[in-house]
Design a protein around this nucleic acid. Structure first.
Lengths: 194, 194, 194, 194
DNA sequence: TATGAATGAGTGTTCATTCAT
DNA sequence: AATGAATGAACACTCATTCAT
């Protein structure tokens, strides 16, 4: 009957992002209701709107956070590596991410809910894929990659890593099981030259 | 409180199936409303329920039709072919299907909406994937396929064909453009031995 | 796909009246659907409207039939009997009716669905109750009935007979069990002169 | 997409219970629509579902409230009275209740809508009737009541009180008019010994 | 900052009624 | 006389969003 408890505002925001992320990636954006999000976050329904202007805004924030993490991850693998090795490291870290945070990996790699994304989110997705394309493009100029556009092979490689990540996120595989490495190898074989 | 036109009942059913297929694969199951389906089919909303017991039932009927088509397609490629050739033919025909009927191909190859499928639909999906696994398993016994379980490589191959089919369905590619063939080749390279 | 079978039209009408009677008295008027009525009568939905202009019309026809039967029954007990004996005979025959045709007795004696009755139905109900009042009024002039208006004691007597009839219609009692006779006696004691 | 006024939540709940009670007892459960309930309560349709999980739940809550009141009423008449006097007091208070709250009395005494009641509601009805049976059973052991089971005479007595209560609820009678007392007397005569 | 009661447009579904056959 | 596909208004119920507290 009065304002109420009191929590660190930032913590509340994080709890909402996490609750939304988990629900959106398992139940889907449309099928997830704001009461569900609030309940999982342990706050009242109205509190969502203190931190996000709408359910779509919440989706977009969650989506961009996943892509920022992935973009950072690609940046961190920069160095004097051959393309194959670098992709291997990126793939490995994506799967480790899927193990540690299944929901985050799914938000990144499955592309349901595209229709609800705003321009900034699309830009974030482009940035992540663009970084991958640069990795592949570098490989192309070394002759390590098949003929054909770099963005095509980036998308192909990512499709297979996404496939493996979903298995890991679903707890059907762990990163240490051979299937994970086998699919990463297959992803490389799909795009490598010759 | 009134009836209308008069149409062959079976034709109405087909129009509803088609309308639903197109909307579900573009807008998504939850985001598609029964008024939208009815409008696109050119019938009144209530008419949906003369032919299908629920929106979910309509999804399942549409889903199974897509899988029956695909299962038939795999059966039709039986013959004295090498695994690589047979997969090539299957892949080619799936992409041709995506060109002719984008919505049908998407219903088959993207797996959103799994949560709304009933047992018979899951069985239809299993049957289709099972046929593909048999093709791959035959290749394995010839030593043409990588080490690892046949169902894994069937899923990997299908993930890449699904990727290409989505591009074709989206009219970004045609079957005749080089990317289509390149991705089919890449899909084979991803799973072939050595 | 063509007009169809062929049944004696009168028989169809009777089957519809019976189906409606049974459903209205068990499920209620609003909760009974025209598909249910058609199914129970073994005809198509549209056939209802060849015989009755609406669901309400069907209710009213069924209602009047029940009251015509009851009015006849009262008339048939005319004769040189004492009021008590005549009421005893009427009550007995109403309970026998409830045993033979539970639905008909319920339509007569429970007064749900009054709101859907038309003027002719209300007149039929008035006629039946009017006959009973005459029986009671005759008793009053003999000094056999309590002080107070005849229509009051007719209603009181009928309330108790309706109570017993419902038990019989529900197959909780038979007419031969002592409760039936006890309640008829109680109904007389409720209205007889002190 | 907007909220409004602001009212004490409990008050809203009471308004909904009252609106539903009045509509259910006059129009019937099935024929009463949620828009009607909301309008009469002066709230939006969706507000119903903040307080009750379904229209049936609302019926059951209303039903149990009526039976709790009646059970309390019977308890309050306990004391060193003869059975006849105690029933007289109970009947009188039920009729006063019908005058003060016609809808409540109807919910208690007419038994339409039984089919929508849940187990707790049936239990509440059993409790009320059970208390009446105890009153009658006490009379039986004093030899004041007719031969036959106490629950039968409780039901008979209640049928006649219900008849009178309906007249009072319909404003055809007041409690002070002679008919009310006459019917209470008749109800006693219907069940008393000898 | 947080609450949660309230909103009302929108959802999937039902059903009495019509009418071409 | 009979059919049954079609209608569309109405139904019970949901849910993203608002705002007085």
């Amino acid at each position: 009957m009065a304002p109420t408890p009191r929590r660190d505002g930032e913590a509340t925001r994080q709890r909402l992002l996490r609750a939304a992320l988990e629900l959106f990636t398992t139940t889907g954006f449309r099928a997830t209701t704001t009461p569900q999000i609030a309940e999982r976050a342990g706050v009242a329904e109205g509190t969502i709107y203190r931190h996000f202007s709408s359910k779509e805004q919440l989706l977009n924030d969650v989506y961009r956070a996943a892509h920022r993490w992935a973009t950072t991850l690609v940046v961190e693998t920069e160095g004097p590596y051959r393309t194959q090795d670098r992709l291997q490291r990126i793939g490995r870290r994506l799967l480790e991410g899927a193990e540690r945070d299944p929901a985050g990996a799914r938000m990144l790699l499955q592309s349901r809910e595209d229709q609800y994304l705003d321009d900034r989110s699309r830009e974030a997705a482009r940035e992540f894929r663009g970084m991958l394309q640069q990795v592949i493009a570098a490989g192309k100029s070394d002759g390590a990659i098949r003929p054909g556009p770099a963005d095509l092979w980036a998308a192909v490689w990512l499709a297979l890593v996404g496939f493996a990540a979903e298995r890991v996120a679903a707890r059907e595989w762990t990163v240490e099981q051979p299937q994970a490495a086998q699919v990463l190898d297959a992803a490389w074989d799909a795009i490598k030259a010759g």
